[in-house]
Simulated assay, not measured.
Amino acid sequence: MNNEIIRGRHRAPGRHNPLNELKLLARETAQPAMKGAAFVAATGGLVASFANPASAEPLSASTAGAAAVGPTAGAVPAASTALAKIGYAPAAQKATTQPAAAPKPQVIEDIQVKTERAAAKAAAAKAAAEKAAAERKAAAERASRDLTRRTLTATTSIKSSSNGAVPGASSGMRSAYNWATEGQCTWGALAKWHASEGYYPGGWTGNAMEWASGAANAGYTVTGTPRARSILVMQPGVHGSSNVGHVAWVTGVDGNQVHIIEMNALAGPYNYNTRTLTDGPGMKYIYAP
């Protein structure tokens, strides 16, 4: 009988040594790729043979058979389950069971935009305050003019010593500004007209002595009868007028006594003073409507 020695995984009972088997498989495999596959398969069997005693539960028949061939997909969960029994949880499992909290959003404030918005808001508030102040001032001026007109009408005689009722007044041309020479009697008379009526009369120019004819041509009522709320025009020499004449604003009339306020007379340029004059020749009155 010829006894042949057949190399392989055949072994005598009770003489199995996993390390010797690994060496034998690695040496007898000709191709590198086959060496790697054989080594992995044998390693799986080795791991399975060592893992079984460490486990708290015996391996089933199906599991043992798979371990003899190589590592299976169930090998990793089995090890994980065994470690979990003593309180260890892998990092991947912790990340799955305890997801990280979402980061809170951070608000980045734009200082330049904030500054520009604050400046725009302040400018709008300032403009609104200025507008309100202008409206209050305009209302106060209207109220003052109305009070002046009511006072003058109630306290002033509408008759002179020589004739009957004062004729009606017509509206003439208007100006957007005080067109007379500043500081002179003409400028002062127009300023008082504006303070009483809210606008400047216009449509004529020239020295004070020419104002009666100029105002008549501009559409205003011009008469020799004194009346409050009118401009008194005096010819040269009348009540001390200069060689170019003189004008004043009439504040009241008492018979033939005319109460006026005038600039550049007794008080000099830019300054007002008051006088009471007796109506007479060389005196005309431009009525405010």
Rank of each mutant, 00 (worst) to 15 (best):
Q106L: 12
Q106Y: 09
V107A: 14
I108D: 10
D110V: 00
Q112M: 01
Q112K: 02
V113A: 00
K114H: 04
K114T: 13
T115W: 06
E116R: 09
R117V: 06
A118D: 15
A118L: 15
A119E: 13
A120L: 06
K121W: 07
K121D: 14
K121R: 14
A122L: 14
A123H: 13
A124W: 10
A125Q: 15
A125V: 10
A128H: 14
A128C: 12
A129T: 13
A134E: 15
E135P: 08
R136M: 13
S144Q: 08
R145T: 08
L147K: 03
T148R: 08
R150F: 00
R150Q: 01
L152I: 06
A154H: 11
T155E: 05
T155S: 05
T156V: 03
S157Y: 01
S160K: 08
S161N: 12
S162G: 12
S162R: 09
N163V: 05
G164Y: 15
A169F: 09
G172E: 03
Y177M: 06
N178D: 05
A180D: 00
T181K: 02
E182Y: 04
E182I: 01
C185L: 07
C185P: 09
C185A: 11
A189V: 01
A189K: 03
A191S: 11
H194P: 04
H194A: 07
S196G: 07
E197W: 13
E197Q: 11
E197A: 12
G202R: 15
G203T: 12
W204L: 00
W204S: 01
W204D: 01
N207W: 14
M209E: 12
E210G: 03
E210A: 03
W211P: 01
W211C: 00
G214V: 00
A216R: 08
N217H: 01
G219R: 05
G219A: 05
V222M: 02
T225H: 08
T225A: 02
P226G: 07
P226I: 07
P226F: 08
A228D: 10
S230G: 05
S230R: 06
L232V: 10
